[in-house]
Simulated scan of single mutants.
Amino acid sequence: MRFWIKCTRFGTGEAYYVNISLVGGLRRDGEKTVLEFVGSNAQTIDVSETPEDILAIHLGTRQGS
């Protein structure tokens, strides 16, 4: 199964679609979320959504939390 997430590039507002099966990790750097890709030609991108935003958008939020 493949999942795609729509992120917004930090600073430019440009939409960026990410296949989460290729994301090896993510971390916070100030206000930015840095997505780290896996593979021999790995790269990173900075997005403005927080990890919590990404999960809430694509997996829904828990009721009553």
Rank of each mutant, 00 (worst) to 15 (best):
P51M: 03
N19I: 10
Y16L: 11
K32I: 15
D46N: 04
G25E: 12
L59V: 11
G30F: 06
L55A: 07
Y17E: 02
R28G: 03
R9G: 03
G64Y: 00
A42P: 08
T50V: 11
G24P: 09
D53K: 07
M1E: 14
V18G: 00
T50K: 04
R27N: 12
K32D: 05
P51S: 09
P51N: 03
E31I: 10
R9Y: 01
I5Y: 01
Q63I: 08
G13C: 15
G60Y: 04
A56K: 07
A56N: 14
V23N: 15
D46F: 05
T8P: 02
M1G: 02
I45L: 10
Y17C: 11
D53N: 10
G30D: 15
V38E: 07
N19M: 10
E14R: 15
D29I: 13
A56C: 03
V18M: 07
V23Y: 14
R28Q: 11
A56E: 14
W4H: 12
P51V: 01
L22V: 09
I54T: 01
T33D: 01
F10D: 06
R2N: 03
R62I: 08
D29L: 13
F37M: 13
I57N: 09
E31M: 12
I20T: 04
V38Y: 04
Q63T: 07
R28S: 14
V23T: 03
G13T: 09
G25F: 01
M1A: 15
E36T: 04
V47Q: 00
G60I: 02
G24R: 03
L59H: 14
R2H: 09
T50I: 12
R62V: 03
Q43V: 07
V18F: 06
L55N: 06
R9Q: 15
L59N: 15
Q43L: 12
Y16K: 13
L22N: 12
Q43F: 02
F37L: 15
T8M: 13
L55H: 05
M1P: 04
H58A: 00
V47A: 01
R62G: 07
E14W: 01
M1H: 12
I54R: 04
R28T: 08
S65T: 08
F10N: 03
G60P: 10
E52D: 08
R28E: 14
L55C: 13
G13P: 11
R2S: 03
E31V: 12
W4C: 06
V18W: 02
E14Q: 14
S48E: 05
T50N: 12
Y17M: 06
A56S: 10
V18A: 06
E36G: 05
F37C: 08
V34H: 02
K6S: 04
R28W: 05
V47F: 00
V47H: 00
L55V: 07
E52Y: 04
E52T: 07
G11Q: 05
V38S: 06
